[in-house]
Amino acid sequence: MVFTPVLTVPPLAMQGQPITVNWTAVDTASSYTLQRKADTDEDWAQVYSGAELTFAETAGAWTSVQYRVQAVFSDSTSDWAASASIPVVSASALVISGQDGDLGTLVNDVPYSVSSDTGNQISLELRVNGALWTALEVSSGYAQSIPVIDLPTGAGTIDILATVQASTGAVSAARAWTYTKTPVTTSAGPCDVVEWQDATGAVKFPVTLAEAVRIPGGKTLDQVTQLPAQICTGSYVGTGTYGKDDPTEITFPFVPDLWGILGYFTNNKRSWVRGQSQLVPWGISATGLFTTAGSATTNFEGTTVSLYSDTGADYQGNGNNQIYYYIGIKIG
């Protein structure tokens, strides 16, 4: 009895993407013959002959395709095992920018985009060196860049997988890149980095703290918040004076939306925190800033905040020889 291989094909294919066909082994078979018939073909065409049990090819500009396989023996062949017709959707159903291959030595961010003419949301996965970096749902036309500063040095891989629901089923597209990144070196000994620019003069070194903070997925804090966040910190030593005519004053390099002072004492600590436009619920009363035994009145003139207390120097952040730390945050 001559046995026929069992053929397995995908339920759906997309133009320009691989179609993988598999079949089972048959005892005593020396090889297998695989044929394909697309809607653009007049007859069956042989696409593979050999001992392997799998074959892959790139889908052409077809709307459907069918495969059949037979086992070849020393003196005979088996019957053909034919697949059902496989729908092939247009390449425009899902497109990832670029071409597979080696990106070379990276010096700039790696841009990419995904688009679909289905009108449906696209599931996107981005992996670097096999590790999942990003998994999210995006709309057609989504464009993003992989920051070169976030990529590991040495030889690496970047893989993008996108999936969308087409009229005939879910289709996927993939992009595979390799790259090399060399570490950035500086001269030996202490150095001051004033500004790092590329060949066009664009500043590449983070300008603000928000740009330096990296969020999982490669974005920076300022990209996530879409705000030019700025932070200023400092300290001072109290002189022991207090009162309306001798307030404690701090001048920031910007008008802060939130500011605070923290003072450490022998047995406890006291803090003052408030927003520029509204009070925040930490150490504040409706009439002003307060501590456990008194309150302080605050006032803003431009970028300078002043506070005073009639209760004592400790309560306006000016205790004699005490160290105080302050912070100002601008988020908009």
Rank of each mutant, 00 (worst) to 15 (best):
Y325G: 06
G60A: 11
T54P: 05
S92Q: 15
G98Y: 05
A81S: 15
L103V: 12
Q46T: 15
T153P: 01
E42P: 03
T8A: 13
V72A: 04
T134P: 02
I146N: 05
N108V: 10
V2F: 11
Q230F: 00
L227P: 02
R127L: 10
Q99E: 02
T28A: 12
S116L: 09
E125L: 08
W272Q: 11
S123Q: 12
N129R: 01
Q15F: 05
S172F: 00
D39S: 15
T20S: 12
V21M: 01
G154S: 05
L136N: 13
A143N: 14
A173R: 10
A38L: 11
S30P: 07
A162R: 08
I158F: 05
E42C: 07
D257G: 08
G169H: 10
T208H: 02
D159K: 04
S285G: 14
V128W: 04
R36M: 14
W133F: 06
L136M: 11
L258I: 07
V21Q: 06
S31Y: 11
N108S: 15
Q121H: 07
G154L: 02
Y112I: 13
V114S: 09
S172Y: 03
Q66C: 09
P5D: 03
T241H: 10
K181R: 14
T28C: 07
P190Q: 03
P216D: 04
G238R: 10
G169P: 01
N108K: 12
T239K: 14
W177P: 00
L94N: 09
S30C: 12
E211T: 04
S235Q: 13
S49H: 13
G238H: 01
A51V: 12
A131L: 08
Y32M: 00
L132P: 12
S187P: 02
Q144Y: 14
F55R: 13
V6H: 10
F254Y: 05
L34K: 01
V164R: 08
S64H: 02
S172V: 03
V194A: 09
I86H: 01
Y142S: 10
A210K: 00
G234E: 10
Y308K: 09
I149Y: 03
Q223M: 01
S139L: 06
Q15Y: 06
T291R: 06
Q66W: 00
F3M: 06
Q278S: 08
T20M: 05
D222F: 04
L307V: 09
G328F: 11
G217Y: 01
T266I: 13
G243Q: 06
R68F: 14
T54F: 12
V193Q: 07
T58P: 03
A84I: 09
G294A: 15
T168C: 05
D198G: 00
E301S: 14
R270W: 01
